[in-house]
């Protein structure tokens, strides 16, 4: 028991004035409405302020895209030869010194993986599709790519899905070009926070497949 509480009890047991009648200190405690209101309001203000700050700082990168595959600790070394990548298509790793131009480019032939991976390092998203994709879907993807800097697309014969979107360390395979996750992936990863080399260009290097 604290010193002040002891003093209060001592006063209550002292018969004088209006409180002359003896009272049970345990049942007579008043509900401190003022204090409750005071701390409730402070708590509310703090809650709103913290919630607001959280909303402000929330990142735009949506890592919660269903089916997204992530890979860390990818090598960034430059090599001149052929690289055996762990995934098909690759989503990062050793690559050629020249990047594939990725300023909204639609390529109609397969690319060299070693050049395409360098573009991912610069913050580009690579849309690979399996040859035979229906014409309307191909057209929809081409429209997206030509309207979006830091994207490029190419056919990829050995693909095990109709479409694969790749950024550095991020990959999503899709069945249909109309899937809303295409735009989600672009919004999250075009020049996104996964980019190992922000500010690097998407033109001025390899311009043909």
């Amino acid at each position: 028991m604290s010193k002040s509480a002891r003093n209060r009890n001592a006063r209550n047991t002292n018969p004088r004035g209006k409180n002359a009648r003896p009272k049970n200190a345990l049942t007579e405690t008043q509900v401190p409405w003022g204090t409750i209101a005071f701390f409730t309001v402070i708590g509310l203000v703090a809650f709103v302020a913290i919630g607001y700050a959280f909303m402000q700082s929330r990142s735009s990168a949506d890592e919660s895209i269903a089916g997204l595959v992530t890979k860390d600790d990818l090598s960034r070394d430059h090599v001149t030869g052929t690289v055996k990548y762990e995934t098909d298509p690759p989503m990062g790793g050793e690559h050629d010194g020249a990047w594939q131009n990725c300023n909204g480019r639609v390529y109609d032939a397969p690319l060299r993986n070693e050049n395409a991976v360098h573009s991912l390092e610069h913050g580009a998203v690579w849309i690979a599709y399996r040859p035979g994709l229906p014409a309307d879907q191909l057209e929809a993807l081409q429209t997206r790519v030509t309207g979006t800097d830091y994207t490029f697309m190419s056919p990829y014969p050995s693909l095990d899905a109709p479409i694969a979107l790749s950024a550095w360390g991020k990959q999503l395979k899709l069945q249909d070009a109309a899937d809303p996750r295409v735009d989600e992936f672009l919004r999250a990863f075009v020049k996104g926070p996964q980019t190992p080399e922000p500010g690097a260009p998407c033109d001025g290097a390899k311009d043909t497949p």
Partner: peptide, 16 residues
């Protein structure tokens, strides 16, 4: 680019 980072907004708009 730093503005978009600070504002927490995507660097691209797929709508064109």
């Amino acid at each position: 680019t730093a503005w978009l980072d600070e504002w927490g907004l995507p660097k691209t708009d797929p709508a064109g």
